[in-house]
């Protein structure tokens, strides 16, 4: 794991005075899928939100420690969080299309930001490519002008994936992207992960053990704000080193 795209060093996250992450250190390999698993409330969302400085958006939320992106600390004083978020994209648990925007405007929403001007043709090309990557193009190509909210939940989630991809982030954070999806949409997203990792570094939070086993290269098990175990997915799921990990992945968790 020499080429870590991102890594966290002794990362601690707080909500007001309460510490939700107690010093987490791990690396995320470039062009690989890293799954984060663990019981509800263990700090998975908090961890990924610290990776693109979304954690601090919540009132009273702070964090300490380092997060390196290409060896550079994203919490260094000179770093603009807006730039970090451009490089580290995010898909949320619940689909969040902009309800007043059309499908294509939703996908292109990030393009207009930060004064980046793209020509009409370029924009259309990016919209199509992003929708294709998110496996949504075939379903919506005839109704790009319709509102994003007119899609089904699963389609909306893929729309959000397309929207995140359109700005060409280097890292893609996905916080339980499939929790509201049916098995078919879930399978599509999983296929998508395998394609996307050619170009992106992917970090995915999931409650679904099979999903983590199927589509990730590395797995991190978090418990109560601590990183219990981290390693190659195959190893974690076949020969976990820690008792807690084994209990959790076999569903014997207390």
């Amino acid at each position: 794991m020499a080429d870590n795209k991102m890594s966290a060093r002794d990362l601690r996250a707080y909500f007001h005075k309460v510490e939700a992450l107690h010093g987490v250190s791990l690396g995320f390999a470039a062009n690989r899928v890293t799954a984060i698993i663990g019981p509800s409330g263990c700090g998975k969302s908090t961890l990924v939100r610290c990776l693109n400085r979304m954690h601090e958006v919540v009132p009273g939320a702070t964090c300490a420690g380092q997060v390196l992106l290409d060896g550079e600390d994203i919490y260094a004083p000179a770093i603009d969080p807006v730039q970090v978020r451009r490089r580290v994209g995010m898909v949320f648990q619940k689909p969040t299309p902009f309800p007043t925007m059309s499908i294509e405007d939703n996908v292109a929403a990030g393009l207009k930001l930060n004064g980046i001007a793209v020509s009409r043709a370029e924009r259309d090309r990016i919209v199509e490519e992003s929708l294709r990557r998110a496996a949504l193009w075939e379903e919506v190509k005839d109704r790009l002008k319709r509102p994003g909210a007119s899609l089904s939940g699963g389609q909306q989630q893929r729309l959000c994936v397309a929207r995140a991809l359109a700005v060409e982030p280097e890292v893609l954070l996905m916080d339980e992207p499939c929790s509201a999806l049916d098995p078919i949409s879930t399978a599509r997203i999983e296929e998508l992960l395998l394609e996307l990792k050619e170009n992106f570094t992917i970090i995915i939070v999931t409650h679904n053990m099979q999903q983590a086993a199927r589509c990730s290269d590395f797995t991190a098990f978090l418990y109560a704000g601590n990183l219990i175990e981290f390693g190659e997915t195959k190893q974690i799921f076949t020969t976990p080193a820690r008792r807690e990990t084994e209990d959790y992945i076999t569903g014997r968790f207390g």
């Binding site: 807006v82 978020r85 994209g89 949320f92 309800p99 007043t100 930060n114 959000c160 929207r163």
Partner: peptide, 23 residues
Amino acid sequence: SQREAALALGATKWEMVRIAVLP
């Protein structure tokens, strides 16, 4: 969630207002 969606795309505060809050 709407604000966060905008911020996560790399929107500044004003851009967040423009694309998520006002519409």
